[in-house]
C-alpha cells in the first residue's frame, strides 16, 4: 500500500514537473524544475527499497535499510537546491534585462503580427544578427 502511494507521488510530481517545464514563462519553468528534482530525489531514495522501522546502521536492529541511496540523495538534494537558487536569480535577471518573463525573451505572436512589436522586441531575428 505504501509502495503504491509512494510511486503515485513520484509519478504526480514528475508529471507536474514536466508540464510546468514546458510552459513559456520562467516562473512555472523554475517551479517545474523544482518539482522534477523532488520527484527524482524521492525516486532515488526508494531505490534503496522502502522499509519501516529499519535504521540505516548495521547492528541497531535485526533489519536495516540501505544507507547508500540516503547518502546519495542528500548530495542530490543539496545540488538541486543550489541549482534552483541559481536559476531563480538568473530568471529574475532575465526578467529585468529582457523586460518580460517569457523564456525566449519575448512572446512570439506580437513579434510576427505587429510592426511595433517587431521593432520593440529586444530579441527579434534582425537585432540578433
Amino acid at each position: 500500500m505504501i509502495e503504491l502511494a509512494f510511486s503515485a507521488l513520484i509519478g504526480v510530481l514528475t508529471a507536474t514537473g514536466i508540464y510546468l517545464v514546458l510552459r513559456a514563462q520562467t516562473f512555472p519553468v523554475v517551479l517545474g524544475v523544482t518539482l522534477l528534482s523532488y520527484g527524482v530525489n524521492l525516486f532515488f531514495f526508494a531505490m534503496g527499497r522502502l522499509h519501516t522501522d529499519a535504521p540505516a546502521v548495521i547492528g541497531q536492529a535485526t533489519q536495516h535499510a540501505d544507507p547508500l541511496p540516503q547518502a546519495l540523495v542528500l548530495t542530490a538534494i543539496v545540488i538541486a537546491f543550489a541549482m534552483t537558487a541559481f536559476v531563480i536569480v538568473l530568471a529574475l535577471r532575465a526578467r529585468m534585462e529582457l523586460g518580460n518573463d517569457h523564456v525566449d525573451g519575448s512572446p512570439i505572436i506580437p513579434d510576427i503580427n505587429t510592426e511595433s512589436g517587431h521593432n520593440h522586441s529586444p530579441t527579434s531575428k534582425d537585432n540578433q544578427a
Binding site: L36, S37, F44, M83, A94, V103
Partner: peptide, 27 residues
C-alpha cells in the same frame, strides 16, 4: 542572459534524467 537561461534549464532537466537513470541502475 537569454542563452544562459535556456542552457541552465535544459541542463537541469538533463541532470534529473541522469539521476533517474543512476537510481534505476542502483536499484
Amino acid at each position: 542572459t537569454r542563452g544562459g537561461l535556456h542552457y541552465v534549464i535544459i541542463n537541469l532537466v538533463g541532470s534529473t534524467l541522469f539521476l533517474f537513470a543512476v537510481g534505476t541502475l542502483y536499484g
